[in-house]
Design a protein around this nucleic acid. Structure first.
Length: 141
DNA sequence: GCCAACGTTGGC
DNA sequence: GCCAACGTTGGC
């Protein structure tokens, strides 16, 4: 089981949009960055991820699950670009902001803090556990 | 709205 | 294959 972080501008694709797709999930399409694509190639069914709102909100607002592994991105004919599908699992009871992450010494090495422009990122189990704790999220509900 | 960081492109 | 120019992202 691996953990990830998906970044999105809420004005383009928000957590509310994601929740509205329900169990069907949604293609995480439009990624045009090799590093981000390579992360998606590593993803497996059932992997969990944080859903992060960039721009105005800058916070982890929900938890998502990979519901389809890597496949061609339907929004382009360019076969270099592939994506996975994700579905909403649960909202963060308390969104964890970028400032919160920066304030945590244990998260100083997190990709979110150090490479703000990467839109799909790996998250370590330790980071995952800490952010869940900060957000008041428990997998058991 | 500005600017820094970074990835990509294209000329050589 | 290097590197300068350019475009995009995202924090502030």
């Amino acid at each position: 089981m691996a953990y990830w972080l998906f970044k999105s501008e809420p004005s383009t694709w928000s957590w509310e949009d994601q929740v509205a797709r329900g169990e069907a999930g949604e293609e995480w399409d439009g990624v045009r960055n090799y590093q981000a694509r390579n992360m998606m190639r590593e993803m497996r069914l059932g992997d969990l991820g944080f859903f992060y709102h960039s721009q105005s909100e800058k916070a982890v607002v929900g938890v998502v699950e990979v519901c389809a592994e890597i496949h061609p991105d339907s929004t382009t004919d360019d076969d270099r670009w592939e994506c996975v599908d994700i579905k909403a699992v649960a909202p963060m009871p308390r969104p964890v902001t970028l400032a919160d992450c920066k304030a945590e010494p244990a998260l100083a090495n997190m990709v979110l803090v150090n490479n703000t422009r990467l839109s799909v990122q790996p998250v370590t189990p330790e980071e995952w556990a800490l952010i869940c704790k900060l957000g008041g999220y428990s997998p058991k509900g």
